[in-house]
Amino acid sequence: MTHKTSIHRLKLTDFRNYPTATLALDGRHVVLTGENGAGKTNLMEAVSFLSPGRGLRRAVLADVVRVGATGGFSIFAEVEGMEGVVEIGTGTEGEGETVVRRLRLNGTPTRSVDELTDHLRILWLTPSMDGLFTGPAADRRRFLDRLVLSLDPAHGRRASDFERAMRSRNRLLSEGRFDPAWLTGIEQQMAALGVAMTLARREMLGLLAGLARSPDDSSFPSAQLALKGFFDKTEGPAIELEDRYGEALASGRYRDAAAGRTLEGPHRADLLVRHADKDIEAERCSTGEQKALLVGLILAHAKLVATMTGHAPILLLDEIAAHFDEGRRAALFNRIDALGGQAFMTGTDRSMFSALGERAQFITVRDSVLVA
């Protein structure tokens, strides 16, 4: 049985274009409509900060603070979460390069924002992701890692630790410091972290494959998923894979020094997506087909999160209805509703969401003012 996770109250202070704003919600889906630039996406971004990381825009924290504000921003939310009702407060302190993010749960400071995943999982889809299949591999890796992170909160720390170790190795190689003991220690750390990252990514693709290829209806095309570019075949115990990667790093020191970067590792992998029904690569599909593929993947992942955690995630779907006809929009809303959670959706035209009917709470955004 899947339990619902929902936000019942949201209050912002000095966040983007909002000096202050309060949103009272009743647990239904939320549709935010208004002209471009009114602040709809900013509200969605505020909700995304109820999860670890830098939000759906991956913003520098100092840039999120309202222009002219004398302090940091703050977000307060009352949430019916995975461990019951909880009050979440998060925001920033400091200025310039010293800006840090803080988190309070029920008024008590926490050691890490990672504790947010104990209470809710948040997934999002934004227009900036529309070029995922035709853009650089780094965007697809980041997309996949976000999917992994929603089920495995430790994945983010592994990835950041790997990047830190790789930078240390690259610096030593660029300086010509080929101390075997020092490099071997760093490479062993990279091997353990890199293999763990790869196995976590492949496990996610394995879990997602069945759902992504078996949608509840035919409105969104099925996807075939694969990971390529690093350990394309990962048979054998993890320790053997770590040894193989460690040996590859050691033997490639002079090559990497000449290149100025590490040429082999999980940072070189790519997520491959195919339109299963047409058996063609996603990047060769039409713009509309690519959008439908991406939406289908997000919905499949949301269903996986609900199945694995027992709680439906909160979905943030920015400008979600703009590219679909009336029939596909209705099918999309039915799929969202069937997940059993709460979704936030934005658009310029309220009529595009008419198929939701009473299943949604409609709010108009006008120049940072919210009108129910």
Rank of each mutant, 00 (worst) to 15 (best):
T98D: 14
L23Q: 02
T198F: 11
R261G: 12
R9W: 04
S251T: 12
M44W: 00
V30S: 02
E115R: 02
F324G: 14
T309P: 01
T346D: 15
S351A: 15
L315I: 08
D217M: 04
A306N: 06
I336H: 02
P215Q: 06
S51P: 00
R28L: 07
R9N: 08
L294M: 05
D243G: 09
A338D: 15
P313F: 05
M129G: 10
V85E: 14
V64R: 00
S286A: 11
D130N: 14
S51Y: 01
E264G: 12
T348G: 14
E289C: 10
G185C: 06
Q361P: 00
E240P: 02
G265I: 05
Y245I: 15
F353D: 08
S48L: 00
A137I: 08
S368L: 08
Y254E: 15
L132W: 02
R274C: 10
D63R: 05
P221S: 05
R57V: 05
F324H: 12
G176D: 09
R9E: 08
P266I: 14
L50P: 00
K11V: 14
A212G: 13
S251W: 05
R58I: 07
D232P: 11
V86Q: 13
V295N: 03
G68W: 03
G71M: 02
L149M: 10
E163L: 13
V79L: 10
L116Q: 05
Q342V: 10
Y245S: 15
V100G: 07
D145H: 01
G210F: 04
L241N: 12
A226N: 15
L272V: 09
G340Q: 06
S174W: 04
E247C: 10
G176P: 02
V305N: 06
Y254G: 08
V67N: 12
D277H: 01
A300E: 08
T2N: 09
R329S: 09
K228C: 07
A292I: 07
G327V: 09
F230K: 14
A209W: 06
H119D: 07
A212I: 13
R58P: 02
